Amino acid sequence: MTDPVRVGLVGLGIIAETHLAVLAERDDVILDFTVDPRPVGPVVFRGDTPPHYGGLTQALDAHKPDLVVLATPTDTHAGLVAQALLGSGARVLVEKPLVHDLASLAGLRELDGRADVRGRLFTAHHFAFSPEVDWAAELLAAHPGWGPVTAITSAFYDPYVLRGAEAFASYLSSWTDSGVNQLSMLTRFVDLTGLRSVSETDGGASAWCTVGFRSRGGEGVARLRSSWLTGSSSKESGLVLGRSGVEVWIDHTAMTGFAAREGELLAVFGNDGRTPRKVAHYRPLYASLLSGRPDPVLGFDAAVTITAIHQAGAGGRGPVAGGGPGEGPGPQGWWGG
């Protein structure tokens, strides 16, 4: 028997609801405290209401958590990470993206001499844990004879055109919003080497980027399309293993996939339709994080690689007021995710 993991949750917006739902399923976790500067209602966790604070410093003065989860606006991440790492011995899980500018990333690197950044800081790259991504990664690992991935095409569409200026205020641009999800997903299949090209159109509502990668001794290019000019959400990725002629297609919206070679269907993946998409992402994410051997995609080195490519594609732009997706002060609620 081991003691339960004491979790402190900072930020009680939209994405916090998913964290709470998944954590409540785990009998090895207790919610030690919550933090949010806004006047929010009490959080009920398995019938109990944990202590609530208006600031992280107050909470850390009163508690000794094992894990601090930061579900706050992206432009608050660097400061809160430093508080949590230096003010406690807890591991820290930060909502993606880890930071929105390279200067903040450099600041976190400098903390490594004062706190175990690589051993304690993790980023919630949840798309890398989606069931269809996990299936495809295991499929490729089980068939090394298929050879390297030689090309990837990924298209992420969200209907934010309907929100007009509000979408830009909350999400900044299509690449800023979707790029980090696409890049983290790709790390399950290939080793990213750098941004090759980027073109943002429609005032930032659409993007076309190419990213270099290595796979099983070969090299290839991933083509990443994202856009808000659509009537509904749609996210798909295709991987080509050119030497063997195998293609793997995964639908991130439906959480399904299949592999084929010419006219032959090689493998299929589906789901029962009962699990909400983000819950399906965060269940395995927390299982990995709390296992004692977290997946490398959660680690600081992966976040450094993803952030460097992501920010190169965004022209190194800093955050706008309100932070990242679902985190702005608009209708989606502050400190969302």
Rank of each mutant, 00 (worst) to 15 (best):
R196N: 15
A222Y: 12
T230Y: 13
T256I: 00
G217R: 10
R214Y: 10
D202K: 12
E247W: 11
G273T: 02
L266I: 09
R283Q: 12
A280W: 04
A280S: 14
A222Q: 13
L224F: 12
L192V: 10
T256H: 05
G257W: 02
G203T: 08
S232E: 11
G273Y: 04
T201E: 13
G273F: 06
S206D: 02
E262M: 02
R277V: 09
L239P: 09
S197C: 00
S226F: 10
F258N: 10
D251M: 05
I250Q: 03
C209K: 01
G204M: 03
R216G: 04
I250E: 07
A259N: 05
G245A: 06
R283V: 13
L195M: 02
E262N: 02
W249D: 11
G204N: 00
G270M: 03
T253C: 08
S199W: 07
G231K: 07
G179N: 00
G263L: 11
V246E: 06
R196T: 15
G217H: 14
G204I: 00
D177P: 04
N271E: 12
E264P: 13
Q182R: 01
D191M: 00
A267T: 12
G212P: 04
I250W: 02
G257I: 01
S237D: 10
K235S: 11
T230I: 03
E200A: 05
Q182P: 00
G263F: 11
V248W: 01
D251C: 03
L229Q: 15
E200P: 01
G238A: 13
G231P: 07
G217F: 11
R196I: 15
R225F: 15
G263C: 09
V198D: 07
V248S: 01
V279N: 00
D177S: 05
L183P: 03
R216F: 06
E200L: 06
E264D: 15
R188I: 01
A280M: 03
L229E: 15
L241R: 15
V279H: 04
L239Y: 12
L195R: 05
T187Y: 06
V279Q: 03
L183C: 01
R274E: 13
T210M: 05
V198E: 10
G204C: 00
V180K: 14
R188L: 06
T176E: 13
T256A: 11
G218Y: 01
A259E: 01
D251H: 09
A254V: 08
F213R: 07
T253F: 07
S237P: 14
S184G: 07
R214L: 13
V268H: 08
S237R: 14
G257S: 01
S197A: 05
S178D: 08
A280L: 02
H281G: 01
S234F: 10
K235L: 12
T187W: 04
R216W: 05
G217E: 12
F269N: 14
V198N: 11
V221F: 04
G245S: 08
G242C: 05
L241D: 03
L186H: 02
A260P: 09
T253Y: 07
T275I: 05
G220I: 08
V248L: 12
A254I: 09
V248Y: 03
T210V: 01
L192H: 10
T275E: 04
R225S: 14
L195Q: 04
Y282S: 09
R243Y: 13
S226I: 03
Y282C: 03
A254L: 14
V190K: 07
R243E: 15
V279I: 08
T275G: 02
S237F: 11
L239D: 07
D202Q: 11
H252V: 00
D191K: 00
H281D: 12
